[in-house]
C-alpha cells in the first residue's frame, strides 16, 4: 500500500498548503481608487507611512474612476479616492458618499510622437487637440469611463470638436486602462491624453514624449470620500475616516509632496484645512 500512502500524503500536503492561514486577521480598510494613483507608485509610498501611524492596513483596488465609484456603490469599498469631480458630486448627491474632500492634484499631459506631425506642441490643450483633429493624426482614447476619459471628452468639447461627427479611423477608442492605452499609443505612434504620474512611471515609451503640458485646464483634482454607512452598514466608518483625516493632515500632505519619480514631483497636495 505504498502508493495509497503516497497518494494520500500528496493530497494532504496539497490541502494543507492550500488551507494554511490564507489570511491572518488584520485591521484593514478597502479603498477603491484609480490606476493612476496605484501605478504611479504613490500608494506604495503613502500606505506604509499611514500603516505605521495608525496600525491600519489599506487594501487598494485600482480601477477606472467610474468603476471605482460603482464598486463603492455596491458597498465593496470603505473609501473612494478618485479624480472626476462631476462624478464624485453625483455619487454624494445619490447618498452613497458622506462628504467629498479635496486631497491633491496632478496634471494631464498630451503624449505624442516626438516628431509631432500635427504641430500640437505648446501649452494650450484646446489648440493642440484642434490641430490633431485637423490633420487626423492618430489619437488613442481610454474609452473606459475613467476620470481621464471624462477629462478628455471635456477637452474635446471645449475645443469645439464634435467627436460624434469627426470620429474616424484616426480616433482609436480602446476601452482600456491608462497603461494598456499607453502601450497601444506607443505601438501606433499616436497622440494620447495621460496623467503625468502614470506617464512618468511608464517604461514602454517607444518614440513618444510629452507634447502639451502646463495648461491650468490640465490640472486634475483628486478627491477622497467615505462611503456612507447609512447605505452600507458594514462600512468601516471609524478606520476609513482615520485614513481620510490622515491624508488631508499636514503629515499626509507632506508625504504626498515628497513622492518623486526621477526627481520630479508627481502630485501636489491641496487639501483645504
Amino acid at each position: 500500500m505504498i502508493t495509497r500512502r503516497l497518494f494520500c500524503s500528496t493530497l494532504a500536503a496539497c490541502s494543507l498548503l492550500a488551507a494554511t492561514a490564507i489570511h491572518a486577521q488584520e485591521r484593514y480598510i478597502t479603498v477603491s481608487s484609480t490606476t493612476s494613483t496605484e501605478q504611479s507608485g504613490l500608494f506604495g509610498h503613502l500606505l506604509p507611512l499611514f500603516e505605521k501611524a495608525s496600525g491600519i492596513k489599506v487594501r487598494v483596488v485600482a480601477l477606472g474612476t467610474g468603476q471605482a465609484l460603482d464598486m463603492a456603490r455596491r458597498g465593496d469599498a470603505d473609501v473612494v479616492f478618485v479624480h472626476d469631480k462631476a462624478a464624485e458630486e453625483k455619487f454624494i448627491a445619490e447618498g452613497y458618499g458622506v462628504k467629498r474632500q479635496e486631497v491633491m492634484y496632478n496634471d494631464f499631459v498630451v503624449i505624442g510622437p516626438k516628431a509631432d506631425p500635427a504641430k500640437a506642441a505648446g501649452k494650450d490643450i484646446l489648440e493642440g487637440l484642434r490641430r490633431i483633429e485637423a490633420v487626423k493624426a492618430p489619437f488613442v482614447s481610454r474609452g473606459d469611463k475613467s476620470g481621464t476619459h471624462a477629462a478628455e471628452l471635456r477637452y474635446w468639447k471645449a475645443a469645439g470638436v464634435d467627436l460624434a461627427a469627426k470620429k474616424g479611423a484616426w480616433y482609436r477608442d480602446t476601452g482600456s486602462g491608462m497603461g494598456p492605452a499607453l502601450n497601444t499609443a506607443a505601438s501606433m505612434n499616436a497622440y494620447i491624453l495621460a496623467d503625468r504620474g502614470t506617464w512618468l512611471s511608464f517604461k514602454n515609451r517607444g518614440d513618444l514624449g510629452i507634447v502639451v503640458e502646463g495648461d491650468t485646464k490640465l490640472f486634475n483634482q483628486y478627491g477622497v470620500i467615505l462611503v456612507n454607512p447609512a447605505k452600507h452598514a458594514h462600512v468601516k466608518q471609524a478606520d476609513g475616516q482615520k485614513f481620510i483625516d490622515w491624508i488631508v493632515s499636514a503629515e499626509g500632505q507632506k508625504a504626498i509632496a515628497e513622492y518623486k519619480i526621477g526627481g520630479e514631483q508627481l502630485f501636489f497636495p491641496n487639501a483645504k484645512r
Binding site: 501605478q39 486602462g177 517604461k203 514602454n204
Partner: peptide, 8 residues
C-alpha cells in the same frame, strides 16, 4: 499590472 505599466 507590469504590462500595463509598460514594464514589458
Amino acid at each position: 499590472l507590469e504590462t500595463s505599466k509598460g514594464d514589458l
